[in-house]
């Protein structure tokens, strides 16, 4: 595989006695879209938070464009974070700010842009996710879940980031709105030429937005390959997951009645 733009090597993270990441090794080429699939509690979110620096890995290395980013501090960390956009699972909009202020937040606070100019960009980005300028003056609490997700997407792409993370972008949405979001993600990513990492357990979403798919299980990547090949990967864990079957090598800790 080509030299990755995002490279994780043997990343480990434990919370007390609980080992969440047991040595994750992953590589994403520049401009590619990687989707990490896996069940609940397999370490997907923790992996993402480690890359973002919200959590500190216990050991291992994370490189972005060949640069080690574990343990960055102060200005270097701010510069590093400025290259990211992130769409959170629950959108995580600031509910004390209006929609356009949410979208423009990174521009105003992070890049010290004038409010009027940031507002114009925010309205433009809202247009890109299919929301009219009148939505800009509403507050997040006044929006539906699907609209919140779209505003979250607009905020994630507002600063034209090189790398975008999507945390369960379609969770909690109806299938049609989920597909709308998937299309928007594909469009936005293409327009920006960004490298993306998404985590999801929604296979329809994964097939739509992924160039490559990786499967995480018990804190390790057990399979990685092109999205087209996932149906013929021959990995019993992956097969069980994509068919959504309770029977197979992955056993849930559910007490039988």
């Amino acid at each position: 595989m080509a030299e990755g733009y995002i490279e994780l090597y043997n990343v480990k993270k434990s919370f007390g006695p609980k080992h969440v990441l047991n040595g994750v090794t992953l590589s994403v080429p520049r401009g590619h879209s990687l989707v990490v699939i896996g069940g609940s509690g397999t370490g997907k979110s923790v992996m993402l938070k480690c890359i973002l620096g919200l959590l500190h890995p216990d050991s291992g290395s994370i490189r972005i464009a060949g640069e080690e980013v574990v343990g960055l501090k102060g200005k270097a960390r701010d510069d590093y974070l400025a290259r990211f956009g992130m769409l959170f699972q629950g959108a995580a909009l600031f509910d004390s700010l209006s929609v356009w202020e949410n979208v423009a937040f990174g521009l105003i606070q992070g890049r010290h842009m004038a409010r009027a100019k940031a507002r114009d960009i925010a309205i433009d980005k809202l247009g890109q996710v299919g929301l009219g300028p009148e939505v800009g003056n509403l507050f997040p609490a006044e929006l539906s879940g699907g609209m919140q997700k779209r505003v979250g997407l607009a905020r994630a792409i507002a600063a034209d980031p090189e790398i975008i993370f999507f945390d369960e972008p379609t969770t909690g949405l109806d299938p049609i709105m989920a597909d709308v979001i998937n299309n928007l993600i594909v469009d936005c990513v293409k327009r920006l030429g960004a490298t993306t990492v998404s985590i999801t357990h929604d296979m329809a979403s994964a097939r739509k937005i992924a160039d490559d798919i990786a499967m995480i299980f018990k804190g390790e990547i057990i399979w990685q390959g092109a999205a087209k090949t996932i149906d013929h990967g021959g990995n019993p864990y992956v097969d069980q997951f994509i068919h959504g079957s309770a029977e197979g090598p992955i056993q849930m800790d559910v007490l039988k009645p």
Partner: peptide, 21 residues
Amino acid sequence: TMRVTEQIDALVTLATNPFKY
């Protein structure tokens, strides 16, 4: 509430230090 709805994490990803802000 900002913590449990990930708004504080979102601040960090928008290059804003939550202690300062």
